[in-house]
Design a protein around this nucleic acid. Structure first.
Length: 429
RNA sequence: GGAGAGAUGGCCGAGCGGCUGAAGGCGCUCCCCUGCUAAGGGAGUAUAGGGUUUAUAGCCCUAUCGAGGGUUCGAAUCCCUCUCUCUCCGCCA
């Protein structure tokens, strides 16, 4: 959620900046609602005050043994007027809130303006895509060859499309990857390892911004409407991890708070029919090791660089070539202020594909969550800044390893750093 | 799942339907006193929203005692629903 002050005082400027990311803010409607809100709220509060004063005087009159009948008759009339005003105000505030919650974050000044992913800017590359002297296979064929190590048919029988069953060495490597990532981030990068619920309530989803706009992307255990408090499967550990800060006031000295967790993620992938239908790239259920940081506002820019570096480190240690992209305004996520994507090299696709997304959300989520901190001298608590990033998506990392480490005979070399997690195994197949 | 108890400010803990935004204590901040690593005295110390304003300063107003409804001129205090916590029983990983 944006600072309401922007919307009241600088709405035109705000609308311009939002337009750069493809969101059109209905300025006229907003101004009208805002004007109405102002007068209605003032009137309601005046009435309220009036009633409070009169009610108090009834108490005093009663204590003094005076006749309170005339006083009570007077206040009675006030009550109806007040109730009507309150109800009208309530509806109006709800309307404004609904609009506000659907407005995306403002992009940072250094985010390139662009309409879609084609205008993202490449920042850097690491590693050389390996040249193969045989016809490369994609991860689906490699996995199938490893004793049905990746088995989409069986998963389709059990559940449906976009699910997978893994076997033996491939399943082991999948597990090894998440262990390796968790250890790296908790031992070397200073994150607290966390275990969190995979089901969350609607308050949490509102807090990080999945709701109210993107309910269709989630799996719900019951219909989660405005009035229903159905639990939903997490689409990312960002939701439970970040919401740990919801309604909390931290001491400034406690920040930054760095947390990492390995969880499955569940996404309905509504609207992505026909895209990435083959293989592990786009699944309804996938594992991810998530990085979350809660920092003071002045530190969030540096924290984004640091956090992205932590995700990059995973790729470097695994020896996977990648490039770092700065997302343009049109391709950023709803709550993001600035986002880097890491794209790993996939030989079979002859392309770089997203494997991590690292974002500075600024105070956007913190405002929705009322996540704050208090500085020693400061009178008021301030909103903190939240950041999150994948460090990394485990399934896609597995894809990258299968494809980049494949051998002509169909076997796959296990990257050095994973061997300790796989009983010293050096090769699959 | 069955039975019972509870939910008040950063923490602990009072609170007859009106004088309680909330006693008291702890903690914290500032000041005073004190010649020794202590004690004492004084003052201050919730959050959100709105108005006014150059102002995130002041001032004024409103709301909030788990959440949401209700009764009432008036509710932390009465009634209902829900959530969570604790104890006992059952069941289970």
């Amino acid at each position: 959620m944006l600072d309401p002050k922007y919307l009241r005082n600088d709405i035109d400027e705000t609308a311009t900046r939002l337009a750069s990311r493809g969101f059109s803010l209905d300025v006229d409607t907003f101004n009208q609602l805002e004007e109405k809100r102002k007068s209605l709220q003032m009137r309601t509060q005046d009435l309220q005050n009036d009633r409070n004063v009169r009610s108090k005087s009834i108490g005093k009159a009663k204590a003094a043994g005076e006749d309170i009948q005339p006083l009570m008759a007077e206040v009675g009339k006030l009550g109806d007027e007040l109730d009507a005003a309150k109800e009208e105000l309530g509806t109006l505030l709800e309307q404004i809130n609904k609009l506000s919650m659907a407005i995306p974050n403002l992009p940072a000044d250094d985010v390139p303006v662009g309409k879609d992913e084609s205008e993202n800017v490449e920042i850097s590359r690491w590693g050389e895509p390996k040249s193969f002297d045989f016809a490369v296979k994609d991860h689906v064929d490699i996995g199938a060859g490893l004793g049905k190590g990746l088995d989409f048919e069986t998963a389709a029988k059990l559940t449906g499309s976009r699910f997978v069953v893994m076997r033996n060495g491939v399943a082991k490597m999948h597990r090894a990857l998440s262990q390796f990532m968790l250890d790296l981030h908790s031992n070397d990068h200073g994150y607290n390892e966390m275990y969190v619920p995979y089901l969350v309530n609607t308050d949490s989803l509102l807090g990080t911004g999945q709701l109210p706009k993107f309910g269709a992307d989630l799996f719900h255990t019951q219909p989660a409407t405005e009035e229903g408090q159905g639990l939903s499967l997490i689409p990312t550990a960002e939701v439970p991890l970040t919401n740990i800060a919801r309604d909390e006031i931290f001491a400034a000295a406690d920040l930054p708070i760095k947390m990492t967790a390995h969880t499955p993620c569940f996404r309905s992938e509504a609207g992505s029919y026909g895209r990435d239908t083959r293989g592990l790239i786009r699944q309804h259920q996938f594992d991810k090791v998530e990085l979350v940081q809660l920092v003071q506002p002045e530190d969030s820019n540096a924290a984004l660089e640091e956090l992205t570096g932590h995700a990059e480190k995973v790729l470097q240690l695994l020896g996977l070539p990648y490039r770092k992209m700065l997302l343009c305004t049109g391709d950023m996520g709803f709550g993001s202020h600035k986002t880097y994507d890491l794209e790993v090299w996939l030989p079979a696709q002859d392309a770089y594909r997203e494997i991590s997304s690292c974002s500075n959300m600024g105070d956007f989520q913190a405002r929705r969550m009322q996540a704050r901190f208090r500085s020693p001298g400061a009178k008021k608590p301030e909103l903190l800044h939240t950041l999150n990033g994948s460090g990394l998506a485990v399934g896609r990392t597995l894809v990258a390893i299968l494809e980049n480490y494949q051998q002509e005979d169909g076997s796959v070399v296990v990257p050095e750093v994973l061997r300790a997690y796989m009983g010293g195994l050096e090769k699959l197949g």
